[in-house]
């Protein structure tokens, strides 16, 4: 199972993006899933880069797998991201009010809303000192 490990910062976005989109390409996944992966990857990486570690930084690991579902023709793209930063469940954060007008709109907070909307299923677990976020996309 291929995995990529990189510094949890924005500079790692292109190399992790290449890895994720390449797994999709190798599995001949086309249509709306690759653009979704592209976006969701940035959002979760930015989140870890901003919040997981202190000034010394740390690493992030991403593993992508394509799972066949035996009872149908469809497949599932599984995206798992791990970091060793502070305990943080991104699925439990408050979502921004998307009905507020320009004056009342808060700047920021939309990334995780995009993630939870675009992924078909999201899971978070804390395993020892590790945050594990797993996102599933129906192909």
């Amino acid at each position: 199972m291929p995995t990529i490990r990189a510094k949890a910062n924005l500079e790692s976005l292109p190399v992790i993006r290449d890895y994720v989109l390449n797994v999709a390409h190798q599995a001949k996944i086309t249509g709306e899933v690759p653009p979704k992966l592209d976006l969701v990857l940035e959002e979760v990486l930015v989140n870890v880069a901003s919040h997981a570690y202190g000034p010394d930084g740390g690493d992030v690991e991403v593993t992508c797998t394509v799972i066949d579902t035996p009872d149908s023709d469809s497949r599932i793209f599984r995206f798992e991201m791990r970091d060793w930063g502070s305990h943080f469940n991104p699925l439990k954060t408050d979502m921004p009010d998307t009905t507020a007008d320009i004056d009342d709109r808060q700047i920021g907070g939309l990334g995780l809303l995009l993630v939870t909307t675009l992924a078909d299923k999201c899971e978070y677990t804390r395993q020892g000192d590790m945050n594990v976020l797993t996102l599933f996309f129906n192909v």
């Binding site: 976006l39 709109r105 700047i107 990334g111």
Partner: peptide, 19 residues
């Protein structure tokens, strides 16, 4: 081709300034 929440953030900040 692509916009993320970082792009939305910049658009909203710009819209607030223009308003």
């Amino acid at each position: 081709e692509y916009i993320s929440s970082a792009g939305l953030r910049s658009i909203l900040a710009a819209a607030k300034k223009l308003k």
